[in-house]
Amino acid sequence: MYTSTGFISWLLRRISGLALVLYLFMHLWVIGAANSGVQVFNDRLNAVQTPLFKLFEVALLAAVVYHALDGIRLLLIHYFDLTEYRKSLFWAVIILSAIITIVGGGAILVIAFTGG
């Protein structure tokens, strides 16, 4: 196996992407409860808004943020010919994702545990 920052970014992109696809279909199903009426919808949504699910939500946020920033990186490289900055752009994505996840995830947890 040939490892490099590019290889790591590719692996993370695939793993987060596949996780998000799985989440997407679960999400569609949860919201789809609206088709069976107000009561079913509220019950199902209450079930996924417990503190445990809030923790999952932080992981979800990390996946979304990484996947999005990585995508922005690829767009920048495509449109502005930045292949020479591949390493610094990769680390910028990692650091930015970490910061956004910590701040955004922290906010989710604070809201969840103080009741908003």
Binding site: Y2, S4, T5, G6, F7, S9, W10, R13, L74, I77, T83, R86
Partner: peptide, 16 residues
């Protein structure tokens, strides 16, 4: 191509 960049790092002629 998934923009992994290994080819740039590998090329002994410094091509891109």
């Amino acid at each position: 191509c998934h923009t992994i960049f290994n080819c740039i790092d590998a090329c002994p002629k410094g091509l891109n």
